[in-house]
Amino acid sequence: MSTPRFLSLPPGVRAQRIETPVGSFAALEALPVSGVPERWPALLIPGYTGSKEDFLAIFQTLAQAGRRVVAIDMRGQYETKGPDDPAAYSCEALGEDIDAVAEAVGGGEPVHLLGHSFGGLVTREAVIGGVIKPASHTLMSSGPAGIIGAREQAARLMLRTLPEVGLEHIWAHRLEPEAIAAGVPDHIVAFLRRRLFANSPTALVTMAEQVLGAVDRLDDLCELDVATLVLYGEHDDGWPPPLQAEMAKRLEAECVVVPGALHSPAVEAPETTAHALTRFWNAAEQRLMHNA
């Protein structure tokens, strides 16, 4: 579970809702503090148990490059409501949501699409099966198939214990002590609790199943002509860095390793991450306009 760097909204960032034919999605939107957006917009998708707030630390830098930047809570996450139907939280179903959100955000323009961790498994479904063609696709701290390693064990623990003991027990006996031991400030701990309990329990269970059981779809992505970036922390404790590097090779994608970062580069190394994204997005736009 990643920790936002801060919770107050930076200048130029506001809360809003994105209305689509498939539902309403809670969002944070960043715009340049001065001037108007001149570049294509970006849509950021959080990971399992995450939310739009996980991108707060990079919003300003990304927007100041001249583009509108939007991050959302997926269906069933934090401030976006979701049904009790587990089918609504498959990667395919969530990918259809992201396709609709991207269409609304773009308003006829191409959109740079980024998925963090589990969000990467979702955005690839939007890229493979969606109606829109993104301006680019970034897989941040994500992988080719189901997650492995320490975070795999955490997801399996959530899957096993949530139906048995409930969120209150999981928070009080595992997540809160972990946050306190890591030195997380009190107001962030309070936010993490509020966010966790706002999630749909059905979404938490089904998304855990999805992040554990995802199949490799890199061959499907390889068939598409979409500029792709694989970006991850040097010490990622989710999908192992060598596995993500191999994924980049299979996709013939650009690969950026963020020094010192773990599983959440946008939180742990925001300026390095934001500058890498801006450079990649600008280059992708130049290529697309040159080939038009």
Rank of each mutant, 00 (worst) to 15 (best):
A150L: 12
A253T: 05
A30D: 01
M140C: 09
L62A: 05
E164D: 11
R151K: 12
W281L: 08
A172R: 14
M1E: 11
G82A: 06
K133A: 13
P11H: 01
T61M: 06
R193E: 14
T20I: 10
G120M: 00
L159S: 04
R5K: 13
A155T: 06
A198H: 06
V226T: 10
D219N: 11
A42L: 07
I18P: 07
V257C: 14
G183S: 10
L121S: 08
E29K: 02
Q153R: 14
E252R: 15
P242W: 02
P110D: 08
D220I: 02
A26E: 02
G76K: 00
D54G: 13
L121D: 01
P242V: 00
L157C: 07
R287F: 06
H235P: 05
L167N: 06
G183K: 09
T228L: 04
R151C: 09
M74S: 07
E53G: 03
L62H: 03
E29Q: 09
R156Y: 03
E109W: 10
E53W: 01
E223Q: 15
I148E: 14
R193A: 11
A154V: 13
T49H: 05
D85H: 01
R195D: 10
V256H: 07
L175P: 08
A154Q: 14
R287L: 10
E92N: 07
V22M: 05
V256W: 00
E268Q: 11
H116F: 07
R194P: 05
T49Q: 09
D237Y: 11
D54E: 13
E109T: 12
Q286P: 09
V36N: 10
G50P: 05
A276Q: 02
L56I: 13
A15C: 06
L114F: 06
L288W: 12
H187A: 09
E268M: 03
L192V: 06
